[in-house]
Simulated scan of single mutants.
Amino acid sequence: MSGRGSQPVRVLAAGVYPQAWLVTGVILSLVAGQGMRGVVPPWAVALCVVAAAVAGVAGRRARHVGGAAAILGAGVVSAIALSAVTGSSWSVTLLVVGLACGAPWLGGRYLHQQDELADEAAQRARLQERSRIAQDMHDSLGHELNLLALRAGAIEMDTTLTSRHQGAASELRAGASLAITQLAAVIGMLRGDGPVAWGPTSPDIAGLVRRAADAGMDMTLERNGPEDAAIPVVRCIHRVIQEGITNAARHAPGSAVTVKIDSSAEETQVTVINTPPNMSLRRRPGSQTGFVALKERLQACGGTLSAGPHHGGFRLIARVPRGGAG
């Protein structure tokens, strides 16, 4: 038998169509009931056993009880009608239908409910474990970030340092404080506390580039055309630039980064280009997950993303429609 021809058999055997199983069980029990006229032949007992098996499978696989109730009701009506036509005992036929189909089906439904309860218990256990892990992350990472912020604050207050070094310490302290806030938001989301408004409410693109420059990166920002006032679009642009700067800092330390924002009446194009890296500096590997998430974010805004090598460095180009939803 070919794979295509055996597919319906495998589907039925897997209990995908529980109503068909129940119909089969009812028919077998009706036939067995009609055969019990004063004596109980072995074939009738065998039919009852098969009917009970398929009815039990139907009860365990069924998701809804409405169709099963209709089938069992039709079986009861058929039992009375067949008994009237053939002259057999309708009470015996009804008893066979009830014992060979009705009772096993109820037993299957009980097992089905037990399976659902077990699944719910497992889901609750997973949620509790996720909440516990989230709390552990909050406690451990929050502790380290708070210590980092305290150390940065102490450096910032050191009068023996130059104003440039104090400013760098101030930026470090502010970044650690922001990371603590964002960590709390993410942990709340993992614990199921509700939706999280992620990202800056009022994205500051110039501030993003300035902070990267203050951190020691060679940054250039170029703007052409009117600025888009739509917050979702600005958030998308902010996210693109953030990913481009992060990518350059991780994979091309010491490179010069140029951010270009070209706006027209139809769309805004953001280009982030970094020159070849300083090979004497250590580069960190990446997982490419940032580009995947960024592409999904741009698709939500109705935009597109392209990225790849460019003159020994790297170039990231994003296009976002003016006023796109995000």
Score class of each variant (00 low, 15 high):
residue 88 S to N: 10
residue 88 S to W: 00
residue 88 S to C: 09
residue 91 S to H: 04
residue 91 S to V: 05
residue 93 T to S: 07
residue 93 T to H: 08
residue 93 T to I: 08
residue 93 T to E: 10
residue 94 L to D: 10
residue 94 L to Y: 00
residue 95 L to P: 07
residue 96 V to C: 05
residue 96 V to S: 01
residue 96 V to G: 06
residue 97 V to D: 03
residue 98 G to S: 14
residue 98 G to Q: 09
residue 98 G to F: 14
residue 99 L to S: 01
residue 100 A to E: 08
residue 100 A to I: 04
residue 101 C to R: 06
residue 101 C to A: 08
residue 103 A to E: 00
residue 103 A to F: 01
residue 103 A to S: 04
residue 103 A to K: 00
residue 104 P to S: 00
residue 104 P to H: 06
residue 104 P to Q: 02
residue 106 L to Y: 09
residue 106 L to C: 08
residue 107 G to A: 03
residue 108 G to Q: 09
residue 109 R to H: 14
residue 109 R to L: 01
residue 110 Y to V: 05
residue 110 Y to P: 01
residue 111 L to C: 03
residue 111 L to A: 08
residue 112 H to E: 08
residue 112 H to T: 04
residue 113 Q to D: 12
residue 114 Q to S: 05
residue 115 D to A: 14
residue 115 D to G: 10
residue 116 E to T: 05
residue 116 E to A: 12
residue 118 A to I: 09
residue 118 A to T: 09
residue 119 D to T: 03
residue 119 D to C: 06
residue 119 D to W: 07
residue 119 D to H: 01
residue 119 D to N: 03
residue 120 E to P: 02
residue 120 E to Q: 14
residue 120 E to G: 10
residue 121 A to I: 05
residue 122 A to C: 11
residue 122 A to Y: 06
residue 122 A to W: 02
residue 124 R to L: 14
residue 125 A to W: 07
residue 125 A to F: 02
residue 126 R to A: 10
residue 126 R to Q: 08
residue 127 L to W: 07
residue 127 L to M: 15
residue 128 Q to P: 00
residue 129 E to H: 13
residue 129 E to R: 15
residue 130 R to E: 15
residue 130 R to Y: 07
residue 131 S to G: 12
residue 131 S to K: 12
residue 131 S to D: 10
residue 131 S to L: 05
residue 132 R to D: 14
residue 132 R to T: 12
residue 133 I to V: 15
residue 133 I to P: 02
residue 134 A to P: 08
residue 134 A to D: 04
residue 135 Q to R: 15
residue 135 Q to C: 02
residue 135 Q to K: 12
residue 135 Q to D: 09
residue 136 D to A: 13
residue 136 D to M: 07
residue 136 D to K: 11
residue 136 D to S: 15
residue 137 M to G: 05
residue 137 M to F: 01
residue 137 M to K: 06
residue 138 H to A: 13
residue 138 H to N: 07
residue 139 D to Q: 00
residue 139 D to F: 00
residue 139 D to R: 04
residue 139 D to S: 11
residue 139 D to H: 01
residue 140 S to C: 15
residue 140 S to R: 15
residue 140 S to M: 15
residue 141 L to F: 14
residue 141 L to D: 09
residue 141 L to W: 13
residue 142 G to F: 03
residue 142 G to W: 07
residue 142 G to P: 04
residue 143 H to M: 04
residue 144 E to L: 15
residue 144 E to Y: 15
residue 145 L to S: 03
residue 145 L to P: 00
residue 145 L to N: 04
residue 146 N to Q: 09
residue 147 L to T: 09
residue 148 L to R: 13
residue 148 L to I: 09
residue 148 L to D: 12
residue 148 L to M: 13
residue 148 L to E: 12
residue 149 A to L: 00
residue 150 L to N: 14
residue 151 R to W: 10
residue 152 A to I: 03
residue 152 A to Y: 07
residue 153 G to M: 03
residue 153 G to T: 11
residue 153 G to I: 06
residue 154 A to E: 15
residue 154 A to D: 13
residue 154 A to N: 10
residue 155 I to C: 11
residue 155 I to W: 07
residue 155 I to F: 08
